[in-house]
């Protein structure tokens, strides 16, 4: 598919995060540009993979502005300015985030949660209700709309957390392991929601982590492997990006999963095992 790259949507420069002196991730650099395909709206789908404890969640907290990096910066497109290349440092609230534990407000039912997520949106009450209804129906939550998080199953909580962020966030959305613990049907609805987000606006960018490499290869157009780098024959004890795969360049993005994808899965797993 013919595509072109425009302005930068995400720029991570020399990023390091430490928790009380312990460096968890270091020297993370990457840049993602707005992918443009003529005749259709295409957002960006970025996957972060890596073995447990390598710092995926930590990277996400920095990307969402929830933790202050010890060094470096995260820049996102500033859509409030007319200049197409305007960028700004990310701060809390700019980027939607579904955390690994699907945290929700314990004292809000699903409906109340969604209403809260929409509170800043410029829509009439009726429009908001319609939108909420649509999501409840298509994600199979209609029956549970008046239940509290403690009365929901893990998968229902997760879907609520995802929709909540879709409703509230702007162009950016980070999801930490959105596929873990879901049944086949739920996985399809999360996949569908990714497609929905990325076809709504050119700038929309979904960043997710997963331990399911097949899924990452199937969905993403750009994959980063985060792991411990090997320096002078020694394995370091902080995470950084050890491999980047641009599926667009390889011609594997936005296409059916085939043998080439499978080959890529093997390659990524190899890289993960070595870091």
């Amino acid at each position: 598919m013919n595509y072109s790259l425009h302005n930068t949507v995400l720029f991570v420069e020399n990023l390091s995060v430490a928790y009380d002196d312990r460096v968890v991730i270091k020297n993370i650099n990457f840049e993602e540009k707005n992918v443009v395909i003529d005749g259709r709206t295409t957002g960006q789908t970025i996957a972060i993979v890596g073995r447990s404890g390598r710092g995926k969640s930590t990277l996400f907290k920095a990307l969402t502005g929830l933790v202050q990096p010890t060094a470096g910066s995260v820049l996102i497109a500033d859509t409030t300015r007319s200049d197409i290349n305007a960028a700004k440092a990310v701060k809390e609230g700019d980027v939607g985030f579904v955390d690994q534990k699907y945290t929700l407000f314990r004292n809000k039912t699903i409906s109340q949660t969604f209403e809260f997520a929409l509170r800043h949106k410029n829509m009439s009450k009726a429009e908001k209700n319609d939108l909420i209804k649509t999501y409840l129906d298509s994600w199979g939550l209609e029956k549970f709309k008046d239940q509290y998080p403690c009365e929901l199953s893990g998968g229902q909580r997760q879907r609520t957390a995802i929709i909540e962020q879709i409703l509230s966030s702007g162009h950016y959305m980070v999801l930490d392991e959105p596929f873990s613990g879901l049944d086949v049907g739920n996985i399809e609805s999360v996949k569908k929601s990714f497609r929905l987000i990325t076809t709504q606006h050119d700038l929309n960018t979904v960043i997710f982590s997963t331990h399911d490499i097949e899924l990452a290869v199937e969905l993403a157009d750009s994959i980063y492997v985060i792991g411990y780098p090997t320096l002078n024959g020694n394995i370091a004890d902080y995470g950084t990006i050890v491999k980047h795969i641009d599926l667009k360049k390889m011609g594997l993005a936005w296409s059916e999963f085939d043998s080439q994808h499978l080959q890529l899965v093997k390659e990524i797993k190899e890289a993960m095992l070595q870091s």
Partner: peptide, 20 residues
């Protein structure tokens, strides 16, 4: 996580205090 959750929903710090 509960504070972070509120922060990602565009709550300012006072709203975080109120909501969480």
């Amino acid at each position: 996580e509960e504070f972070d959750h509120a922060r990602t929903l565009k709550c300012n710090r006072w709203e975080v205090l109120l909501q969480v």
